[in-house]
Simulated scan of single mutants.
Amino acid sequence: MKHLGIKEIEEILPHRHPFLLIDYIEDYEPGEFAAGYKCVTFHEDFFRGHFPQEPVMPGVLIVEALAQTGAVAILSKEENRGKTAYFGGIKSCRFRGKVVPGDKLKLETKIIKCKGPVGVGHAVASVDGKVVADAELTFMIG
């Protein structure tokens, strides 16, 4: 298993706080998959407005965290180092549960197709083994 801490993730991704949504990569294989975590705390900036009485992590940020996880897999390939992975599309996205403060959000993205600078990943987010979101994400390397 290959692990990445926050400093190593920042060497691969251009994202920075508050928009870097991965805390740790548990395992990855360049060009194939990445699995990591976001430890969701009450102090996340988005909880101030979403929603103050019942804080819930916005679904679009869960999808972004999944995309960043996939970007670790793609951008860790030697030929893609220093590049950026852009969203090309989101397909068949489903939200199946809430993510709240205190959750340890597991993020898994497997690259299922890649041709030239365009690729597709199957992404699943879960909390305590329960799927909270899944989608097919298209990316473009720039």
Rank of each mutant, 00 (worst) to 15 (best):
R81T: 04
A133L: 02
P117E: 08
F51K: 09
K130E: 14
T138H: 05
A71T: 07
G142I: 10
Q53R: 09
T84W: 05
M1G: 09
G49T: 07
F19Q: 02
L61Y: 00
H15D: 14
E79N: 13
I25G: 02
R81Q: 15
K106R: 15
L105E: 01
G88F: 10
F95P: 05
E79V: 04
A73P: 04
H17V: 12
G82E: 13
G89N: 13
G89Q: 14
I141A: 03
A133K: 00
G88C: 11
V132M: 07
C93E: 04
V72M: 00
M57T: 13
D128H: 10
D134S: 02
E11M: 13
G5M: 12
Y86T: 02
L137C: 04
E64A: 08
V99Y: 11
A71K: 11
G89K: 15
Y37T: 09
V127N: 08
P30H: 10
D27E: 15
F47R: 06
V56S: 03
Q53W: 05
K98R: 15
T69D: 00
R16Q: 11
E10D: 02
G102L: 11
D23A: 09
D103T: 15
V127I: 14
H17L: 12
E78C: 05
K115Y: 06
D134Q: 03
K104D: 06
F33V: 02
C93T: 13
I74C: 07
F95N: 08
V131H: 06
V131P: 04
Y86I: 07
E54Y: 15
A67E: 04
H15C: 11
P117M: 11
P117I: 14
V118K: 12
A125E: 02
Y37V: 07
V72F: 00
G49F: 08
L75H: 08
F139G: 00
A35Q: 13
K106P: 02
G5K: 14
F87I: 03
E26I: 15
V63L: 15
G97K: 08
V124W: 07
C39A: 09
D27M: 03
L13I: 03
I9H: 00
F19T: 01
V60W: 01
G49P: 05
I111M: 05
K104C: 12
I111E: 01
R94Y: 09
E32T: 13
D23N: 12
F46S: 07
K7C: 04
P18W: 04
V120M: 14
G82K: 15
L75T: 10
H50R: 12
P101C: 09
E32S: 12
T84H: 07
E8P: 00
G31Q: 03
P14A: 13
V132Q: 06
K2Y: 09
D128T: 06
T69Q: 05
A125G: 13
F51I: 11
P55V: 08
V124L: 05
H122R: 12
R81G: 04
R94E: 14
G49Q: 10
E79K: 15
I9C: 02
G59Y: 07
F95L: 13
E8A: 13
G89I: 11
L105K: 01
K110L: 14
G88K: 09
E11C: 05
K91I: 06
E32N: 11
K83W: 06
G82D: 12
M1T: 12
H17W: 15
H122G: 02
F47L: 05
